[in-house]
């Protein structure tokens, strides 16, 4: 396998140019290895080589963000590397932001994989953890050896376009993408060990930090329901018999829109459920139980509602990622708005 070419970004301090008094220096490209590059190069052995370093003062970068980024991206491009490494920045705030920004830019503009390292509380982490791989380091340069040990193997994987494992395996800060891997112990043992620590008041690490949860406030009540144009939308999987669009029984990759013009009642011969998460027997006997077309038609006739929209929208909620559900809802909502729908009855299972 050919040796990977790597360009590394470092600040004035790690280039041994100076401290805060030299933070104003402009970007400079130096061929060969500078500062921490030495430790990285040793760790890479024959598999990769740092061919150049880009050095920039922290103040210059942060005060001239756009120009600095442009200049640095050009310098990186001139070396046509296989991989770009910035830092590690440890707990240096401006340096961390610079490392995150430039990795992001190199990745997006040059399509070159990029990696940086920071202490978990560095402000650069929250800004860039979702767009760039950031290895978790100690909070000062004394942790350089440890940082190199974690960053070098991940760098090689990125440079070779190999599959990147879970954060816990590879050492990067969780980036919001959940990745499966095999732990050393089975889950029950991990749970018992976690409980022992939690009961004793010791530190433990949860395997899934609770997300901020979306809570949707209901809209105000419809003012005059007898004039309202109402649509039916369901995650209960009601589809025309035979499931013509093959909506999946779980983890739906799509939603369906079906015309019910003139349909007064859903029967066992005409409709069924595609949903795999609940007992389908009763929904298949009479799909109105999930999607109440029959009652809506009665109400329409009796003047209790204005009218029933001639399309219904349907998907399967079972095992369907929230992100997918959100996407379908946005598209459905846009169509409903266009059709001047006043209210929607949303049924599940």
């Amino acid at each position: 396998m050919a040796q990977l070419r790597i360009v590394q970004y470092i600040n004035q301090f790690f280039a041994q140019i100076g401290g805060e008094e030299m933070a104003h220096i402009k970007p400079e490209l130096r061929e060969g290895i500078v500062g921490p590059g030495l430790a990285f190069n040793q760790a890479f052995g024959d598999e990769a080589e740092i061919v150049a370093a880009v050095i920039c003062g922290d103040s210059y970068f942060n005060e001239n963000l756009e120009t600095a980024k442009k200049e640095i991206v050009e310098m990186v491009k001139s070396q046509s590397p296989d991989l770009f490494i910035a830092g590690p920045a440890f707990n240096a705030g401006r340096y961390g932001v610079a490392c995150g920004s430039i990795c992001d830019a190199v990745k997006k503009e040059l399509g070159i994989p990029a990696l940086t390292g920071m202490y978990v509380e560095n402000p650069g982490v929250d800004m860039f953890k979702e767009s760039v791989y950031i290895v978790s380091t100690k909070n000062s340069a004394a942790g350089m050896r440890d940082a190199v040990k974690k960053m070098a193997p991940l760098a090689l994987k990125l440079g070779r376009n190999e599959k990147i494992g879970a954060s816990a395996q590879e050492g990067y800060i969780p980036n919001g993408i959940r990745v499966n891997f095999f732990e050393k112990e089975r889950g029950s043992k991990r749970a018992v060990d976690m409980l022992l620590k939690k009961m004793a008041g010791k530190d433990f690490v949860t395997e899934f930090p609770m997300p901020d949860f979306d809570r949707v406030k209901p809209n105000p009540a419809v003012k005059n329901i007898s004039k309202a144009k109402i649509a039916l939308v369901t995650s209960g999987g009601i589809v025309p018999k035979g499931n013509p669009d093959h909506i999946e029984s779980s983890s739906a990759s799509k939603y369906g829109r079906y015309d019910i013009e003139g349909v007064m009642d859903l029967t066992a011969d005409t409709y069924e459920t595609a949903h795999g998460g609940y007992d389908p027997v009763y929904a298949n006997e009479d799909a109105d139980r999930v999607l109440p077309v029959d009652v809506m038609r009665e109400f329409e006739k009796e003047g209790k509602i204005g009218s029933l929209f001639h399309y219904f929208y349907t998907t399967v909620g079972n095992g369907t990622a929230v992100k997918s559900a959100k996407k379908y809802a946005e598209e459905i909502a846009a169509e409903l708005k266009k059709a001047n729908i006043d209210a929607v009855i949303l049924t599940s299972t």
Partner: peptide, 9 residues
């Protein structure tokens, strides 16, 4: 029930 070693992060 945690029967397996499979996990995610």
């Amino acid at each position: 029930m945690g029967f397996n070693r499979l996990s995610a992060r």
